[in-house]
Amino acid sequence: MAFTEDQFTDDQIIRYSRHIILPEVGGKGQTKIAAAKVFLIGAGGLGCPISYYLTAAGVGEIAIVDDDVVDLSNLQRQILHSTKTIGMQKVDSAKAVLNALNPDVEIVAIKERLTPDNILGYIKDYDIVIDGSDNFPTRYLVNDACVLAGKPLSSGAVLRFEGQVTTIVPGQGHCYRCLFEEMPPEGLVPSCQEGGVLGVLPGIIGTLQAMEVLKLILGKGDVLMNTLLIYDALKTNFRKVKVPKNPECQVCGTHPTITKLGSYEANYCRA
């Protein structure tokens, strides 16, 4: 990409100066960040820190999809929302804060639930997909859609004191089904009474996801391809687990059985 200094305004040079100074970023890298378009699923515990940092970083366009409204019980961890925005659509509450942080970034607020029918139409216009959802059906839907569409995916999950992050690059590394072939049966998924989370945890996992996304955009460093990073907050322990690509994988294997998006219904407690 040809780089000229006049790609930045004086204010942008000041705003992004700590990026530009880095040899791995520079003006060229900041130009890549500004040209990037990412699609984020969820404006909740993970989606808030992810979109906050990517907006601060100057990512060109961030689409956020979420059909939920802000609830008082969200505010212990969902840092874009506030007491004043309770009852508001989460994507609108998030957009107002993100626009105030950095008007350079185009925030596209989508008040919908992702389905097998609409997801491919949405993600086709974006470079990277980020899963900040809180449920298994969406996680599998997003994984399968990204593999079918060939879109890199940052996937994160949190529960109680443990978080997981992985980066899926279709055609190159593993996918979520290489790791966990099928959705867990109902009884193994924690109910809403069991599913607490210490509020800082999604902040840590979400910022790790934002970092993975920036590295994908810049083409620098090693992302969590073929790797699951597990964070144990109580023990303050980060552990990397190798996840080889499964040649028998139903969606990304040599002879896939999932070639289009089917049904992702499951009867989990979604409170």
Partner: peptide, 8 residues
């Protein structure tokens, strides 16, 4: 920052 952008 300005010098680096110029050299880039």
């Amino acid at each position: 920052v300005r010098s680096k952008l110029a050299i880039e």
